[in-house]
Amino acid sequence: MSAFFDAYGALLGRSILIHLGYVLASVSIGLVCGVILGILLSRLPPKWSAFLLPVLSIFQTIPGIVFLGLLFLALGMIPATVLIALCVYATFPILKNTYTGLSQVENRYLEAARGCGMSPMQILVRVELPLALPSIIGGLRMSTVYTVSWTVLASMIGLGGLGDFIYQGISSNNNLLIVAGAIPAALMAVVLGAILDWLQKKATPGREAVS
């Protein structure tokens, strides 16, 4: 065991950092895009969003590998390829939850806000987004956990991360390498998920947590 860490310890540490870097970068970008697109979608007439949401879901079902492969062909073997692919996948759950959260804000709050003399922007920032926040964080959590596993694909086009260990282990039939890649990835998903669960609870003062 210690022989393994002597040989791979430094590499494993670097891989975890690269992996985490991809996750944080793509989820952050996904969060910004998802929230903005979710807000825009919620401002559209319901007919439009009823049409657009399923179209977006179809896009979401394209396997990550296929999408990554296509992007690889178009952009080449650069970190941006992985990041773009991960961002696109991270955006959707957040977009969807932002939209759902906003559309579930009860009309009485909107009427009260309008009656108090809030402008549409103030209603969005002071009432709608705070009320949708638990749902948005729920989407963020989903994105984060998924992205941790999708990032494994990064090594497919030779860009590092914990996927390196897993793929190397599979191709050389070395179980230890597979486990060395899989366990940190799983732990990362669990820890990030727990942090976001905690955040979600903090985001709902005076209310029952909305899951």
Partner: peptide, 9 residues
């Protein structure tokens, strides 16, 4: 308003 509409947050 009838439904009170206090902001819960």
């Amino acid at each position: 308003i009838q439904q009170i509409g206090l902001f819960p947050n």
